[in-house]
Amino acid sequence: MAQVFHHPFAVGGDEAPVGRVSGLTAWIIGQESMFSRLLTGALRSAQENRGAYFLLAGLSFAYGVFHAAGPGHGKAVVTSYMVSNERALRRGLVISLLAAILQGLVAIALVGALAGVFRVTAQRMNAAAGDLELAAYCGIILLGIVLLVTKGAALAATVRRNWATARVFAAAPPRLAFPPDGQAVFLADGGGLDHVHGPDCVHCHIPDPKQLGAGFSWKSAAVTIATAGARPCSGAILILVFALARDMFPVGVAAVFAMSLGTAITTGSLAMMAVFAKKIALRFSGKGSSRAEIVGRLIEVAAAFCVLLFGVALLAASFAGIGAANS
C-alpha cells in the first residue's frame, strides 16, 4: 500500500512504490514507462511541431489507460464502492468518468493557480497536494463508515427477516384452505382464518428486490467521485509544470484531459468487472434464494469494510510520512 516515508523526489503526493513484481504487473509497468517516455518526448517536440499535437493527445490517452491499470487508491475506492453499493452499470461508468475528469481538473487547477499565478516553489506545491491527499483519505474513511453503517443495517435486517420467515414457515407451511363457505383462501404465518391473504392483500411478506438493491444516493456517489479524484497524479503535474515552463500550458491541459479519458476507460472497466463478479457470485449461491441475498449483503459489508480499512491505512501511512519528514 502507500509507502511510509515521503519519497525524496515526490511530485505532488507520493506514488505507490514498486514492490516485488512479475508477469502482468511488470508488463504494465513496461507499457506505462514506454508511453510515459513517448508522451514526454511528444510534449518536447510539440513546441516546434504542431503536428505533434495529435500524437500527444493519442499518447496521453494511452498513458491514462495503462497508468490507471495499477491499483491506485482511486480505482480501489471506485471498485469497492461499486461492489458495496451499485448494481447499475451505467451509473458506475458515469462515476468513473467524473472521478477521472475531476482528477485532471484538480491537477490543472493546482498547477495553473499555484505555479502559473502565484509562482510557488516545488515544496509549496507538494504541501498543497499533500493537503488534498489528506482530505481525500478522510473522505475515504467517511465513505467507508457511511457504507458500513447502511450495509451493516441491511445485512442485519435481511438475516433477521430470513430467520423469522424460516421459523414461521417451519411451524406452519403456507397452504390453501377451503373453508365450508367454499371460498379458497391462502394461509400463511401460521395464522388461522383470521390472517387470510386474499387478492386484496397489500402487505408484502416477500422483499421487493428493487427496494433491497438500490440504496443509491447521489451523496455517497459524490463522495466517491471526490475522494477518488481529489488526489492529482504526479504524471499530470509534471506535464503541466513542464508545459507551463515552456509557455504552452494549453497543450499540457489538453494532454491531461486526454489522459483523464484514458483513465476513465480503465476505471470504468474495473467497476464493470466488479459488478459482474458480484452478479456471478450471487448466481453461484442460487439466484433469488435467501442464501443469495445474505451472501450479497455480506459481500457488500465486506467491500464497505475494505473502503474504511483502505482510508485508515492511507491516512496512517501519510501521517507516518509527515512525521518522518519533520523529524
Binding site: 513484481v21 504487473t25 504494465i28 509497468i29 510515459s36 469497492s80 509534471l238 465486506a302 475494505c306 483502505f310
Partner: peptide
Amino acid sequence: LFLAGFGAPAFAHPHV
C-alpha cells in the same frame, strides 16, 4: 476480488 483491488503489489513507474 478484494485482493485484486487491494492486496496486489502497488506499483508506480518512473516519473523522474
